[in-house]
Amino acid sequence: MTGTAKIACRNLWKVFGEDPLGFLKSHDFKPAEEDFARAKAIGAVRDVSFDVMPGEILIIMGLSGSGKSTLIRAITRLNDPTAGQVLMDGHDLLKASPAELIELRRHKMGMVFQHFGLLPHRTVMSNVAFPLEVRGASREERDARARDMIRLVGLEGREDYFPRELSGGQQQRVGIARSLAVGPDIWFLDEPFSALDPLIRREMQNEFLRLQKMLRKTIVFITHDFDEAVRLGDRIGIMKDGRLVQLATPEDMVTRPADDYVREFTQNAPRDHIVTLAAIALKHLAPGDGAPLSGAMKLAEAAARVLASDRPIAVVGADGAPLGAVTREAMIAALYPEHRP
């Protein structure tokens, strides 16, 4: 995740109603809730700004109706935003012509949605090759690429199956293979696993992480599941009523929630697998004897040693510099914040 932003959203709005842009201008782009009610307008995305860095998995989440799916559709211009900017590699997507948009979607963007959208009369091979067919690639080129993608997602041997002959997880793999066939720089996924059974969903999350390790795509991933967000995301953005309430790493969100809404989202998070020793190290404490612990260690990794010690244990950074010390009490407080006195 280095360099300039791959995607940059600036003051993005999507308002539904009569003359939405005029509505925003008449209120100086700062309408109150009662203004929306009077105008019978809906602020589905409200003044949202964020960056997505190259190779990053950015998770956008929220409850039903929070605006998360509308946001991804606005970024990709499946629904045109009312106002704001969407920059991809510095180019304003909102100024792109219809022809330019088609080219971007054919060559730069990959999209996967909750409902697989496979063509029922086409085989796995034909479904995966379809976007290349639309692009005008030769039969030889698209078949070779489709076979590579089918192999990548673990469906080799099922090239001639029809969607009805596949499980839900296999159908979603076909959708993923199809979205990757065009070799996109940027991958948009809107709740791709939410329709799957829990075990298959876990399997698809593993598959997703395996693919990302190999491909290093820039990804915007929509979900309503915080456990999924923590497992997959580099950073998480939480939306409420069309606004981006907080954008942070999973650790920052768990340890420093922006408000009660975020705190409620994170209350059942697996803190032992999210929070690091660096986040709870106490700088004023002198450590006892024994080897120091790495600040990058998750609480679960260090719990046995810390909880067994009645003295502070030194915590150091990647460069060996002291970060402070961690105690049994600090560990317990981090794991069970709701039981603090």
Rank of each mutant, 00 (worst) to 15 (best):
K6G: 15
L12T: 11
K14G: 10
F23N: 01
H27N: 15
K30S: 15
V45Q: 07
D47Y: 06
V48Y: 01
V52W: 00
L58V: 00
I59T: 02
G62D: 06
T76W: 03
R77F: 14
T82R: 00
G84D: 08
D89H: 07
D92H: 02
K95E: 11
A99E: 15
I102L: 15
L104I: 08
R105D: 08
G110L: 07
V112K: 05
R122I: 03
F130L: 13
A137G: 12
A137Y: 05
A146Q: 05
A146I: 05
R147P: 14
E159D: 12
R164I: 11
R164W: 09
R173P: 13
R173N: 11
L180Q: 07
P184K: 00
D190P: 14
R202Y: 14
R235T: 04
I238S: 10
L244S: 11
E251C: 11
E251G: 14
D260V: 08
E264H: 10
N268M: 14
D272A: 14
L277G: 13
I280M: 06
A281V: 02
A286W: 07
G288E: 08
P292D: 06
S294K: 12
A300T: 03
A304Y: 02
R305E: 10
L307I: 06
S309L: 11
D310S: 12
G320N: 11
T327R: 05
M331T: 06
